[in-house]
């Protein structure tokens, strides 16, 4: 992969929480426009892994370069965060702001966009995620699926180069999962660089370029979805897939 085609590059990243080795010698490159799905049992370090990418989580050893910025440079971190969208499991919308205000807050105050421009952009994005009629609603007036779509629009409104998703559908009722996944599939097809922690294997099959399986802080297996699901190399991967696919 050429240097300019690399968006995220982990080299020998290690992280400990006290005695717990939560990231064990991670080396991984994600190219521009690539969609990588990360799965694994709970506590395997997959959330920690993507939280490192925008500096929400510090690590002790190794190197991580995102969009040409070395994460060890704490001063460049804020500028980098503008380019990296992050979608949380629990949405984390601002409860005191309407949907539209949630979406335009950072573009106005962080990017320095004027209000008219930010609102035009915000309206277009809320339309795009199917919430054109909910712009004036507060988060508590929206369902979980709608809140998560607002959260995705909020990240997109910064026009990021990378989108990170940390179990975006795990807090949702089953009937709302697809409305969120549909938005993410659309985004993947538009060529967004994405790292997605999820157990939604249908989503992985549809749009992932690669699926990564993590266990106990280490990357156990990386493969394109068709190989990953039909012919996983490692016993632990097979075991995990057996658990999540067979019911």
């Amino acid at each position: 992969m050429g240097k300019e085609a690399r968006m995220i590059e982990f080299s020998g990243v290690n992280k400990w929480f006290g005695p717990l080795h939560v990231l064990n010698d991670i080396s991984l490159t994600v190219g521009k426009g690539e969609v990588v799905v990360v799965c694994g049992p709970s506590g395997s370090g997959k959330s920690t892994l993507i939280r490192c990418v925008n500096g929400l989580e510090p690590f002790q050893q190794g190197r991580l370069v995102v969009d040409g910025t070395d994460l060890s440079n704490r001063r460049a971190l804020r500028a980098l965060r503008m380019e990296v969208g992050f979608v949380f499991q629990s949405f984390n919308l601002y409860p005191h702001k309407t949907a539209l205000e949630n979406v335009t807050l950072a573009p106005i105050h962080v990017r320095g966009l004027n209000r008219t421009e930010a609102e035009a952009r915000g309206r277009a994005l809320l339309e795009k995620v199917g919430l054109g009629d909910k712009m004036g609603n507060y988060p508590h007036q929206l369902s979980g699926g709608q809140q998560q779509r607002v959260a995705i629009a909020r990240s997109l409104c910064m026009q990021p180069k990378v989108m990170l998703f940390d179990e975006p559908t795990s807090a949702l009722d089953p009937e709302m999962i697809n409305e969120v996944l549909d938005v993410m599939v659309g985004l993947a097809r538009e060529g967004m660089t994405m790292m997605v922690v999820t157990h939604e294997m249908g989503f992985a099959r549809k749009v992932a370029d690669r699926v990564i399986f993590m266990d106990r802080g280490a990357i156990v297996e990386t493969a394109p979805p068709e190989t990953f699901f039909t012919a996983p190399l490692h016993a632990r991967t097979r075991d995990f897939l057996g658990k999540i696919l067979h019911h």
């Binding site: 929400l56 804020r78 500028a79 965060r81 969208g85 629990s90 601002y94 950072a106 105050h109 962080v110």
Partner: peptide, 11 residues
């Protein structure tokens, strides 16, 4: 999570 969301947006 509120602080994290604000932090992640570059504030």
């Amino acid at each position: 999570g509120q602080r994290e969301a604000a932090l992640a947006s570059g504030m």
